[in-house]
Design a protein around this nucleic acid. Structure first.
Lengths: 226, 226
DNA sequence: CGGTTCGTTGAGATCGGTCAACTCAAGTGG
DNA sequence: CCACTTGAGTTGACCGATCTCAACGAACCG
């Protein structure tokens, strides 16, 4: 587990540009207050698959992906996490996925046992714990819907989701590679590339550069999304 | 919502042959104790997509599927529920999927508000609420893994999972149609049929009849499952 | 017996995967 | 400053798994 400790300190309120408004949540606040801060360089592993789930993390800046390598070498992406998101919170005492930094990343983390103890004392926190998991479940179900559709539909859904999570604007800056997207959507990197250029040719999106995408025709994207 | 009320009564312990041993859980017990009983005929809708999530259900006998119809007519199966399973418990106050009876079904149900109130009073129940959702999340993630694989691998995973949930024996009696399986796995009914006959030709499974399946070569199935 | 639902099988079309070449941008070091 | 390398992304040709369309078989039920 390669990691760079930038500074570990008890508290400090989080600057607005690092953690965007999250559902005013005692849980998130508690983590921010009780937690230690840590930074990871590009591609560093934050925790590995199978490691004990000792900590719960909140992302301050950067993007994190969770992933899992199958026996045959294929990789499945569990999800992408943006600033403000909680991750690493699992029922099992072993991580089902590993978490890696996409680019430079800063997190706060606290002991899982501390969170569980807090939940036992405070019913409000307990409910937020449930809420957080339920929200991940909803997201997983939405992704299930994506995975039964065509490549075009998967990409449309992915782009809309990313635009939504990034703040709702039409211009998105994708932090992840085509390979990450492909593994997330159950496609190959070539199909992702081809489908994006096809969407650009149909003027549904614009591709100023590989990582920058502009949604031009939300109508059509929504239609493709079903 | 077509339903047949067989009898609504305050309690009665559940006979063992109807509800197999479930994780000795106050939550499930509370539902069984507080709940009313209801029966549904084959293909009846227990609740519909978009309806308020007023009730939480526990399945006593039969099989339930949750599903969702997409705009273009395709259908996605949310999951299958076997006796003892809880269903209908969602974060949102509207059901994201509808629930239907596969064959004759009996359930107990209680008001969702009663469960939430109980969770507020009893931290143990609150944790079980979380646990139940986390378990569904794990299942959803496993299905995500299935959906990125080939038809053979999906079927292998499905069969192993069903055998496991049905008690671990090698002989399974599938309650659902090929269409249900296809929609669950994101395949067509023809591909499901062909893949099953192919597995039978390879002596990996036996097909005494369409709905009865015997696992002959678990080794190979596990291998296919990754 | 006819109708209906469910499942199987076949032939051809299509979408996405595989393999391979090429472009482009960003270092790196002489 | 420029060759060289490296990683990411795009594009093309071909192939195979899965879908589509269609016919057929089996079980069930009035």
């Amino acid at each position: 587990m390669t990691m760079h400790v930038s500074h570990i300190r008890p508290a400090t309120p989080v600057p607005a540009h690092e953690a965007p408004p999250v559902a005013g949540s005692e849980l998130a606040e508690a983590i921010a207050l009780m937690g230690a801060r840590m930074s990871f360089p590009r591609n560093a592993e934050i925790y590995g698959e199978g490691e004990p789930t000792d900590f719960v993390y909140q992302l301050l800046s950067g993007t994190v992906r969770t992933s899992k390598i199958l026996v045959d070498g294929r990789r499945q992406i569990g999800g992408f996490y943006l600033p403000g998101d909680l991750f690493g919170l699992e029922l099992s005492d072993e991580h089902a996925f590993s978490a890696e930094a996409i680019g430079e990343v800063t997190v706060v983390f606290v002991r899982r046992s501390a969170v569980l103890a807090l939940a036992d004392r405070d019913g409000c926190v307990a409910r937020q714990l449930w809420t957080a998991t339920a929200r991940e479940l909803t997201q997983a179900q939405n992704r299930l819907l994506l995975l039964i559709k065509s490549a075009q539909e998967r990409l449309a859904g992915f782009l809309l989701q990313m635009a939504d999570r990034a703040g709702g604007g039409d211009a998105i800056e994708l932090p992840m590679t085509r390979q990450d997207i492909a593994d997330y959507l159950g496609l190959t990197i070539e199909t992702v590339s081809r489908t994006l250029t096809a969407l650009a040719e149909d003027a549904v999106i614009e591709l100023p550069s590989a990582r920058r995408i502009c949604l031009r025709d939300r109508e059509t994207l929504e239609f493709l999304n079903g």
